[in-house]
Design a protein around this nucleic acid. Sequence first.
DNA 1: GAGAGTGTTGTAAC
DNA 2: GGTTACAACACTCT
Length: 281
Amino acid sequence: MPELPEVETIVRRLSTGVVGKKIAKVSVLREKSFRGSPVALEGRTILSVARRSKIIQFNLNSLDHLLVHLKMTGQLILENESGRVGGGHPTGDFTNNLPSSHTRVVLVFDDGSTLYFNDMRVFGWMKVVPHSTLANEYHDLAPDITDPQLTPSHFIKVFATRSTPIKQAVMNNAVVAGVGNIYAADALNLAKIDPHRPANSLQPQEVKRLFDSLKTVIELGIVHGGASIDTFVSLDGLTGRYQDIRRVYKREGLPCPNCQAPVVKVKLGGRGTFFCRECQV
DNA sequence: GAGAGTGTTGTAAC
DNA sequence: GGTTACAACACTCT
């Protein structure tokens, strides 16, 4: 999946769903999906769940951490007596019996509830990281777009040295963490900036406008529980609703929310990119 | 059936 | 160091 708002949504649900539970058994169904020792998790209690960029961090009472990256198609689904809590990519798995053919790791808790890690394309991972090396995992990440300490002046500084298209610059985790394709496109539309513009061609007031727009669309995404595009179906109401209010992403030919001109699709840096030729300059 | 496309990101090459 | 192309994988869509 996922973009930051959907990861944030999952973390919030997991915080109430798994904190305090003791891990009884870990089954790795696909070796590539799990790094480290699954046995190190058994008998450990989850103290809290946090997020950094798009990485989910389970804090354990052993001072180890379980990190999860869902990449393109990962899902975390918690199943207990009262139903399911989770979310992820629209693979259809969500309504199937679990484990499914895409289930890669299964965590069983001592109260009988189960956390499934599904990942169709096997790009995502789970890994056990000792507290002493945790900082290394986040070493190359710029501050999150949701970080209150992040300021427009940071953008102005890092954009000044880059000639890459502005869309690629804001999707670069060394510039700012947590901005993916959907929200990059929508923020550029809201800020009325052409995604092709070299990052170092933006005037300071444009950078400020883009900064505010990114904050706005990410916040909207979180408020609406993330974006679930295409065929995502959920049993428990966790399905994101951002797709209903998205501005340009996958809205080729439909009217631009700023000026009503048709949204066009181009390819930029190998990624599908949606924008308005009329008002994004 | 072939080929392109998919919300991510690490790596290698220039 | 910045930029670009591509690979990892398994689908769905045209």
